[in-house]
Structure formats: C-alpha cells, structure tokens
C-alpha cells in the first residue's frame, strides 16, 4: 500500500484529481470574497464538464471543448449573480437550485441530443499526460496568479472591499454589483475549466461525474479562511485523500489483519473534510463581513 503511494504515477494521479477541486475552490474564494455565498460550484463544474464534452465531440477538438466549458461556467455564474445580486434572491437557495438544475439538466439534454441518459459519445481525451494538458498547466498558473491578483491589484482591492465594506466602495463611485459580477465571471471561467478537465481527461461526460466536488471545494474555501492560495492547497489534500481512497479500493489493504471494506474506502475524503471543518471552522479567519448579506 505504502509503496503504491510513493510513486510518480501516484503523484500525477493526485495532480489530475486535484485540478477540478483547485479551480472550483479558486472560483469559490473569488465569489465569496466578493460577498456572495457560492454553493453553485457543483453546478459550474457539471455544466462545464457537459459543455466541454458536447462541443469537444461535435468539433473533434479538445480546445473547442475547453472554450465551451469555460463559457458554460461563466454562464452559470452570470445566472447565479443575476438571481442572487440583481434580484436579491436567497444566495443559499440559488446555489442549491442551480446544482439540482445542472444535475438534472445535463441528463435531460443528453437524452434530447443523444437519446441516451448515462454517457456522451467520445470527445477528444487529454488522457493521463500532465504537462501537455493545457487545463492542468492553466490551473497551476491560476493557483499562483489568482491569490497574487487578489492581494496586489486594484481589482483585488475592490474585490476585498466589496466583501467587507460595500458601502465604502459606493462612496468612491464603484458599483458593488459589477465588482461582484466580474469576480463571479472570472471564477465561473476557472470553475468551468475545472469541469472541462473532468470530462476531457476521460474523453466524455457521464451523469453525476462531479460527484460532490463542488461541495468539497466550498468546504476548503471555508477551512482556508477565504484565502485562495490556502484553499488551493487544501484541495490538494482532498485530492490526496481521494487518490488514497481509490488505491484502497484497488489494493484492499489490511489493518491489524482486518481488510478495510471497499464500501468505506471512498468515504475517506468526506470524513476528513468533516473533521477539518470541525477543527478549523471559525478558527482561522472571519468570513467576509458582507457574505450572504446585500
């Protein structure tokens, strides 16, 4: 078991698994720092993955698929901000509704387009390669650039201001709504690319393929105290526990002579996340002051 983890193959597996989590968590950090609760990460991942697979299949081009995934993520973010900021709808309900809609909607449109409810036809696959996959390279860059931008640019200052003191922004003549919209759109583009990685890595979309990654990403954003770099790092930890879970299912390790049941191995990331939430919630940093309030 230990030998199988300390290999290059395991490291690249962790990187591949981590990318959607990391991109979703960067998205969540941006939206939430701007003061909007982002429970719609799951929806952005799902719709991004679906759009990438459909367009990737239609054009036979991974790049076109990636662009479609990014656009789809931005579209979901625009709907989210339209409802939650312009129309002032409850942010938690908007997020949950979008997740339900995305999960059912991708299956509905699979039926309508391909008369099939489980999988899309094959799209170009990036496969196991790491350094030639533009999404993985882009995610690594984003994990460095997004925290820097939040900290050191005028845009980042406005983003943090709108989350903590939206009235101060109004006083200098900047509309909080548009700052929130832009934060969410950039986040949506990242999260949509994360979705595209899910489907393009294996060359197709299958129903419910995000399986809760968006919720993990929100949890990591909270655990990291809304700091994007730390949230990305926490996501790598989730990816490691996810990969160990997969190895445990494949290798059936034993503890003191007892085999770990295969049903329990995939639960490892869930348990660790609850434990981390219990330890770190409200301990690290306070949430942005205007989070959830308009």
């Amino acid at each position: 078991m230990i030998e199988s983890i300390l290999t290059l193959a395991f490291v690249t597996q962790v990187i591949r698994i981590a990318v959607p989590y990391v991109l979703a968590a960067l998205c969540g950090s941006l939206t939430e720092r701007a003061g909007v609760i982002d429970l719609a990460l799951e929806a952005k991942l799902t719709v991004g993955a679906f759009a990438a697979a459909v367009i990737g299949h239609a054009t036979d081009s991974g790049t076109a698929g990636l662009v479609a995934g990014v656009a789809a993520g931005m579209l979901v973010a625009a709907v989210q901000i339209g409802c939650a900021v312009w129309l002032e709808a409850d942010q938690v309900i908007v997020g949950i509704a979008l997740n339900i809609l995305a999960l059912a909607g991708t299956r509905f449109f699979m039926q309508v387009i391909y008369q099939e409810g489980a999988n899309t036809p094959p799209a170009p696959a990036y496969g196991d390669a790491v350094l030639t996959n533009p999404i993985i390279v882009g995610a690594m860059l984003a994990a460095i650039l997004v925290p820097l931008a939040v900290r050191h640019t005028r845009w980042g200052l406005r983003l943090r201001a709108v989350g903590d003191r939206p009235d101060a922004l109004v006083a200098v003549g900047v509309s909080p709504r548009y700052v929130r919209l832009w934060a969410a759109l950039i986040g949506g583009a990242l999260c949509g690319a994360g979705g595209a990685q899910l489907s393009l890595a294996v060359g197709g979309f299958s129903a419910d393929m995000t399986s809760g990654r968006g919720y993990f990403a929100v949890a990591m954003v909270i655990i990291a105290g809304w700091r994007p770099a730390l949230a990305a790092a926490c996501c790598v930890a989730v990816a490691i526990s996810h990969a160990i879970g997969i190895q445990m299912q494949l290798l059936h390790p034993t503890i003191a002579g007892h085999r770990i049941p295969t049903e329990l191995a995939p639960l490892l990331p869930y348990l660790l996340t609850v434990v981390a939430l219990v330890i770190f919630s409200g301990k690290t940093r306070k949430p942005p002051t205007s989070l959830g309030k308009l």
Binding site: I96, G212, V274, V278
Partner: peptide, 11 residues
C-alpha cells in the same frame, strides 16, 4: 464548532 450545516449535511 461553527461548521456550516449545508456542507456537513452533504458530507
């Protein structure tokens, strides 16, 4: 522990 109920519920 101030753990967000939506996230813990999902887990």
């Amino acid at each position: 522990r101030d753990a967000h109920e939506v996230i813990t519920s999902f887990m």
